[in-house]
Amino acid sequence: MSAPADTPVTSNRGWYRRNEIAITPWLFLIPGIVFFSIYVVMPIFQSFWISFHEWDGLGDKTYVGTAHYERLLGIGDQKMDRKFEVSFWNNIKWLVLYLLAIPMGLFIALFLNQTVRGIRLYKSLFFFPFVISQVVVGLVFSWFYLPREGLLNAILGFFNMGSLNILGDPTMATYGIIAAGLWPQTAYCMILYLTGLNAVDPEQVEAARLDGAKGHKMLWYVILPQLKPATFIAFVVTIIGALRSFDLISIMTNGGPFGSTRVLSFYMFEESLSEFGFRMGYGSAIATVLFFIMLGFIVYFLYSMWREEKEAR
């Protein structure tokens, strides 16, 4: 430690040695950067590029400028693409209603956060829907909704309330699928809150109790603020989950009846990759619009994370 105190030693060290501190983090980052740019960043720009072309995925691309966006958004003398409009509003429905998973997850987590015999079993049972595949969830719910044999209609029939064909009715089908999606999503939020509840400081609860706080006041002013990190994560995963809602739609209604349950990601898939699709340009234009919607959320999340870190400092 004390021996190489004189300056010439520095020049003896290699270039890497001299810059070790600055370079090492980049060395560790290189694999990540390489893969991220090849598999994420480049495809994003390629999609932008393709969206300005007419292309069937096989032959030559024809440049069409912003024609696809004009058709999609109804710029100029044409109407907005109806399928796009329906998909967009369905996406909004998903975003808003999917957030119900957060309070429901919180409620179940509070309910399960007690010490009784076999609580671990109950917890795992509640977590179960998140473990099974979305495809299975979709199938189970579509059987549940079946117009004649389904359990839902058996129950309705028992109470003489007539029958419902939820997935066959264009006004209800999307809500039916969202309800199916809420089942696993609630379980996810519940797990996040359960781990969050473990970290709640018992002393603060004790102190609040001495001050006479109980019931919903205790929850609102003492418990919830401590669960803020869990809420944030639950919010993020739920929003992303809502925007990624694809498998349930594909399994339960295949976008129908008459395209009323399409969302943007499903429409994009239909246009570009499905059996009757391969209109890569138009599909890419939809993907680009979806990307910018997601970007809005991502920027918001990053901003609030950055703000939080700044406050913590």
Partner: peptide, 22 residues
């Protein structure tokens, strides 16, 4: 229908036909 009509027309067409039937 889905082999005689071009793909995009066929998919839009069949969706409309289903809607008409309901």
């Amino acid at each position: 229908f889905d082999r005689d009509f071009p793909a995009e027309m066929a998919s839009a067409g069949m969706e409309g036909l289903q809607e008409f039937m309901v």
